[in-house]
């Protein structure tokens, strides 16, 4: 569940707080949106440094489980607004992408 992920990576929920019970089925890390578009899977937690609203569009179109923004990167206001409208959880953490991946792997995700 997303709320377990939040605890594990010490994340702040910056959008989509109503969706914390949602299950996550995998993990995907990439910042090229077309690449994500053709490779990420439904239910994935997507780790990206991109902070604009198109991240939410991609996550919503692919039915991704949540977006995790590493290293305290600040998301754009319109991205947060859009994520709340679309029900896409946005999580922010001080960990980097690799550390997040290790933490999620320790939870049994992405295997």
């Amino acid at each position: 569940m997303i709320k377990n992920i939040c605890e594990k990576i010490n994340a702040t929920v910056i959008a989509g707080a109503d969706e914390m019970e949602k299950e996550i089925s995998g993990v995907y890390i990439c910042d090229l949106l077309s690449w994500v578009m053709s490779h990420a899977n439904k239910g994935d937690a997507w780790i990206t440094v991109m902070s604009h609203a198109n991240v939410v569009a991609v996550a919503s179109l692919l039915d991704l489980g949540c977006v995790i923004v590493p290293e305290d990167i600040k998301m754009d206001e319109d991205a947060i607004k859009k994520a709340n409208e679309e029900g896409i959880p946005l999580l922010s953490t001080s960990m980097n992408s690799y550390e997040i991946a290790i933490a999620l792997n320790n939870m049994g995700l992405g295997l």
């Binding site: 910042d31 090229l32 949106l33 077309s34 690449w35 578009m37 053709s38 991109m50 604009h52 198109n54």
Partner: peptide, 16 residues
């Protein structure tokens, strides 16, 4: 810089 322009758009469309 926004993560677009990787030259994958048209090939992705054709694939799908």
């Amino acid at each position: 810089e926004m993560g677009f322009g990787a030259g994958m758009g048209l090939p992705n469309m054709e694939k799908c």
